[in-house]
Simulated assay, not measured.
Amino acid sequence: MHTPANDYNATPARRALDALAGDTEDRAAMDALASSDVLIPVPDDAATEDALDPATVALPVMEQPGGDPTVPVFTSEPAMAALLPFVSRYRLVPLGALASQWPSEDLALTIDAGSPHPLTLTSEGVRTLLARS
């Protein structure tokens, strides 16, 4: 039977996050995550031209409970809809490519916030652990 829960866990990135929850040193899981595509929410107020420009990606920034800024990305549409049901547009971006261009300021990356096994990395962690492709 096809259910949204099955879709939620179906992506290689989601399976990698689940593996990393059990073993943070799992190199195969980190490599799989780095080579996966993620969904980056596009705010509804963003201009269509900006949302479709392949040369740039606007990073949505949210404040974490401690006040630290983080960029939320997601492994699937169901994962994104669970936390941000109001987002109607997104960009599909290779996580490794995003990480290799990560800003130098102190900006964290959270993958699948609100899921059973989210992953939050510091800006240094993003560049060193995920910029593999």
Score class of each variant (00 low, 15 high):
T128M: 11
D50E: 14
Q64H: 02
L107Y: 07
R132A: 08
R89G: 06
P65E: 02
L107D: 05
A97D: 15
T128E: 14
A19D: 11
L129Y: 10
L107V: 05
T3S: 14
T56C: 02
S35E: 13
P103C: 08
L107H: 06
P60R: 10
L84Q: 14
A55C: 00
D53V: 03
D50C: 00
P54N: 08
L84S: 09
A97H: 15
S88Y: 06
P54V: 02
G22M: 09
S123L: 05
L119N: 06
A131E: 05
L119W: 11
D18M: 14
P4E: 08
L98A: 09
A113I: 14
N6A: 15
A10F: 12
D7L: 10
D7T: 09
V126G: 01
D112P: 07
A16G: 06
A47S: 05
Y8L: 13
T3R: 14
T11Q: 12
D37R: 10
N9Q: 13
T3P: 03
M1G: 15
A55I: 00
L109E: 02
T11M: 11
E77C: 01
A51N: 03
G67S: 12
L95P: 04
V42E: 06
P103H: 12
T110M: 13
R127G: 03
S115D: 15
A79I: 05
E124S: 09
W102Y: 06
D106F: 04
T128F: 10
V61K: 02
L92S: 12
T70D: 06
P41N: 10
T122R: 00
S88G: 06
P54M: 00
